[in-house]
Design a binder for these strands. Sequence first.
DNA 1: CAATAATAAGTAAATATTTATTTACTTACA
DNA 2: TGTAAGTAAATAAATATTTACTTATTATTG
Lengths: 198, 198
Amino acid sequence: MRPKNLEKEEAIRTIALQIIAEEGLENLTMQKLAKAANISPRTIYIKYDNKEDLLVTLYIEEVLGAYEQAVLKDFRFDMNFAEGVKKLWLNGFAYFKNNRHAFALMQYGKSSPLLNKAYQAKNIKQGDYFGAVIRFLEYHAAAGTIRNFHQDIQRALLFSPLIDLMSEYFDYQERPEQIITEETLLQCCDVVIKGMLK
Amino acid sequence: MRPKNLEKEEAIRTIALQIIAEEGLENLTMQKLAKAANISPRTIYIKYDNKEDLLVTLYIEEVLGAYEQAVLKDFRFDMNFAEGVKKLWLNGFAYFKNNRHAFALMQYGKSSPLLNKAYQAKNIKQGDYFGAVIRFLEYHAAAGTIRNFHQDIQRALLFSPLIDLMSEYFDYQERPEQIITEETLLQCCDVVIKGMLK
DNA sequence: CAATAATAAGTAAATATTTATTTACTTACA
DNA sequence: TGTAAGTAAATAAATATTTACTTATTATTG
């Protein structure tokens, strides 16, 4: 049996992400992807059932998998609140800085019903990844360090500014000067922490 | 000369927004829109140059126009910081609660390059709308009420949690109980304000 | 003041492309 | 040498946009 060419599998994923990030999800076509990856359209269908499967798989692996794993690096639920939040923010910043394409795909996940479905399907298992963050928040709410909001509300307060600042970071990458540095990011992180502490 | 049928113009806009919100931007086709609005595809082209023009116009009017106007209702740049922020948040909450479709389109603006372009094109004039918010932030930074971050950073800290909470609001509308009420929203607003105050 | 001409609004159906996916074949390796 | 991996080209459906025609109104004319 002829073995799979792993380079081609990799090319499909990398180039799909690239097209999505640079031209938008709406401009990713199977034929364009095949041409850019120097393969036949058929080859994509050997590895994925169809376009939806490709996109959902990409989303789950790059956004719900790799990102969440990167964010939780060296993080423990029983960390000091300020330390923990800073760790999460810096991990996220580092990951996205090097994975601009994954960031673009994540943004699509917030609007596209297709990817949204994938998110909800994965949400059950996601407790395993983000479990540490959930426990972290519960732990500090119980200890009285922070207010006892619903978990989804805590997440919004804690991470939405980071995502928005990340957007700004990429916007400013195409301008003369960058306003989002690790320093300003940590200052923003302090603002968020200060707001949440009781 | 036969006059324009304003109901048809209205139908195009309303139904386009509806399809985008319910099925996604990627599933809006000119033919589907025409059929749903009970008109000929040609009629859309009388009112808009092409699909891009339709989407960009929709985005500018519904997201960059109506929304920003609603947010700034009864807002003045020299308001007390906490009062001003609460006003902006409550205005935004009230608007989106009644304009779910506009919210969906706004979310697409963050990912789709097409709408992103529209945003940048409008950004120059946007100073006129959001000018009051910019002046508000400058005013309070100068007065020492808040830290002196870059305007885009202030905006991220101030509004991204609201947008995220709004997303949660719509998510929870399809579940048994709603976690985002005006009360919890104001509590979150207090968290943000507390974080930003020096 | 009625009849009507001028004209943009509107329609139904067609067109030329583009698209996801498949068919029929070839290739490389265990 | 059997077999899944891979290719080039085909296909059928969908899509944005156009063509060729019809309709409803207004402003003018007789």
